[in-house]
């Protein structure tokens, strides 16, 4: 199966896709209810055990790297330049000042991305796309719509593979893909034009293949992969409800009476993201240098 799904035997994998979809909706909702960096950070930390339970720590961290790029960008640029800030927190070289209000705003925003990203990654990696489609059909989602969703999951890796072949095919026609920035922008045409045509051809073919197997027949269909909501799912949903009630209680009755967000927390989380980002860059550079040195040694 061409998708991000990682087959593992775990508690999260065995949950019904519908439960997991409710879970994702719950996380999105919570990330908006918890309008405070400290609480969001706690929430993010409390999601991590689920990732461990799903045995997806490594792939999760790899996919989080990309979201972290956004977080670094938002926290740095907003922290300095967002006009809502008034109270200075600290200054870096060149007289750029991070301000409290803008840092809170930026942290909430970037933690929200990480929190929602965590739930989404957890869902996508632990749910077989066909299971998701059959679960949606059980929710009375039209079959064709469920299929559209399913095929989107599947076509992305196919397009990625085709893109690689097209790129190689154009390189075989002396296209230099490692040129200047302008050259690279120009290169998009010879790569994307065949890719679009091939994708359309594939989709067209797919529609014929589906019709050959009576896709548009009226009435109900049986599914090869059946999903059932069991006691585990009810327990999980109960947990979600309890958590949600607690969050609402926290926000409505206790908001303002305690404040976990401090200058220190904001500064350390900012520096923390910078540090992780710096590590990522260092890792990338070391890999490049190793490859270069290895190439030299072989030659």
């Amino acid at each position: 199966m061409n998708s991000l799904y990682m087959p593992k035997d775990s508690f999260i994998h065995n949950l019904d896709p519908r439960t997991k979809m409710i879970f994702v909706a719950f996380v999105v909702l919570s990330s908006f209810i918890l309008n405070d960096p400290a609480l969001q950070l706690l929430f993010l930390a409390s999601l991590f055990p689920l990732v461990v339970a799903a045995k997806l720590v490594k792939p999760y961290l790899i996919s989080m790297q990309f979201l972290l790029l956004f977080a670094v960008l938002i926290m740095t640029v907003h922290g300095i330049y967002n006009p809502i800030g008034v109270t200075p927190v600290f200054e870096i070289f060149g007289g750029l000042t991070f301000k409290y209000e803008s840092m809170v705003y930026a942290s909430v925003m970037s933690f929200r991305i990480l929190v929602i990203g965590t739930a989404a990654v957890l869902f996508v990696m632990s749910t077989h796309p066909s299971d998701m489609a059959s679960a949606l059909v059980k929710w009375k989602v039209p079959h064709s719509f469920a299929f559209i969703l399913l095929s989107t999951f599947q076509i992305i890796p196919i397009i990625a593979r085709e893109a690689k072949i097209v790129m190689e095919a154009q390189q075989a026609r002396c296209l230099d893909v490692k040129g200047s920035l302008i050259q690279r922008v120009k290169n998009l045409i010879p790569i994307f034009a065949p890719l679009f045509i091939i994708t359309f051809m594939k989709v067209h073919q797919l529609s014929y293949v589906l019709e050959c197997r009576a896709f548009s027949r009226e009435g109900t269909k049986t599914s090869l992969r059946d999903t059932k909501i069991g006691s585990k799912d009810y327990a999980f949903l109960l947990g979600i409800v309890v958590f949600l009630t607690f969050e609402i209680y926290l926000q409505i009755f206790l908001s303002g009476s305690f404040n976990l967000t401090t200058n220190g927390l904001l500064t350390y989380s900012l520096i923390g993201t910078w540090a992780v980002f710096a590590l990522m860059i260092a890792k990338f550079v070391i890999k490049r240098v190793q490859g270069f040195v290895g190439g030299m040694a072989d030659a």
Partner: peptide, 27 residues
């Protein structure tokens, strides 16, 4: 020429590769 050092564009002027599916090449 060692293929490790040369660019693909340079090597492609010496070795022409015709892919199986012409749709990958023509645009």
């Amino acid at each position: 020429l060692s293929t490790k050092k040369e660019r693909i564009s340079k090597l492609s002027s010496l070795v022409g590769y015709v892919f199986q599916n012409p749709n990958h090449q023509t645009f």
